[in-house]
Design a protein around this nucleic acid. Sequence first.
DNA 1: TTGAATTTGTTCGTATGTATT
DNA 2: TAATACATACGAACAAATTCA
Lengths: 243, 243
Amino acid sequence: MSRSKEPSAANPRDAIPRRGGTGSSTVQAIKSHILDRGLRPGDPLPTEAELVQELGVSRSSVREAIRTLVSLDLVEVRHGHGTTVGNMSLAPFITGLVFRSLLNPDGHLTTLREVVQLREGIDSMVALQLVERLRGEEMPELEALVERMRERSTAGESFMEEDQEFHRLLLNHVGNDLATELVVALWEVNTIVVPLLGIAAPDDIRDTVEAHGDMLKALRAGDADAYRQAVVAHYRPLHKILD
Amino acid sequence: MSRSKEPSAANPRDAIPRRGGTGSSTVQAIKSHILDRGLRPGDPLPTEAELVQELGVSRSSVREAIRTLVSLDLVEVRHGHGTTVGNMSLAPFITGLVFRSLLNPDGHLTTLREVVQLREGIDSMVALQLVERLRGEEMPELEALVERMRERSTAGESFMEEDQEFHRLLLNHVGNDLATELVVALWEVNTIVVPLLGIAAPDDIRDTVEAHGDMLKALRAGDADAYRQAVVAHYRPLHKILD
DNA sequence: TTGAATTTGTTCGTATGTATT
DNA sequence: TAATACATACGAACAAATTCA
């Protein structure tokens, strides 16, 4: 083990008043590094050793700071390769909501119900914009997705991927990426938590598939009210499960 | 104590295939600790030393895991006191959006615009539910807040706190805590980023204040459309700034 | 295919600041 | 004031993954 190693101080903690509350200052420094250089997702960050030098803190501190940024999806780390700027997704949002849902005490399903209500609200909220853009349109990709859902549902398979993609593509037409991400994120919270709680999907599946088709039909016809009704029908099975 | 520490033994990395992608397994273990015992926000967690024992990992690993959970607001740490279960707020969501807004390259304001659009959408989305619950109601707290905004705006002061509280209280009447938190979070993203980008608040302030009053008036009258129009008017000044 | 270099992952030991008693 | 319990920080060594010659 060759301890040797003279204590000798090395004199750390000289400067730096260490304000822990906000964000450990090392975190802030790395954030600034990204901001100042205008780095984009995927761009490489300095290695741990380099950050130790530049910031004048220990490797442990650098690592803890990076860990924080990773958990916020602001940076990404690949073992043996290096760290890059993350894609800043809503993954932390999903993680938090999933944890809350799992921790819900009494009724257990409170958070989950709120998630579904939010999804329904946002899907309805964009009715006018969608009608405006899609009236008379063909939307072959979306139709194809509905068709695939239909096939898989009759085959007894699940069609989560198609379902998520459907909502992603549809919301894409409103031109608000954040709203799209939010809906997809809420959708993921559902799909993660529902199986974990052992809630079996009933045979309302067919209704759900047809609701997707009705949404498209209403949009093509330019009928915002019919679209909203289809959205309600779309979520009815889920609500039934959660009550 | 005083185990004296044998060399061999201890020997980590025996089991545990170490799947880094998901969440470092130590993070997962602490999560499970909370979940299994059904701990609530504020409940105490084991000390670092105890976690080192229970989980059979090093101090550094425990610290990095805790750092991750802190940044997700799943746990809280008070220096010299201990760690507790966090309140699982949407703080990480806010942090991420603020960072994205600051990093936005070209038009710079894309993310911020999307945030405002989302706020507007959610505020409008709950029109029917609010009308249903508040028709003919007095709402003295909300009126008082509008009055305070009026005072402070004429005094040339800012009224961010009253504004935020107004939306929080209003959304509270729809009975979806998640939606309320989301709107408040989006509101905070605005207030953090706008000053950072050096966007001065114009004199449309008075319009904003009156829009708040109009929203209440419309709700009292049970007029959902008038409420939605007031919401649009409420956000008009903000949109003007961002374009 | 081997193997060295680079980089992140994990651990141990130690010293220090801070809050509680 | 002192003691205790706890979190914060530093540094060195080794393990594991990745890349490239």
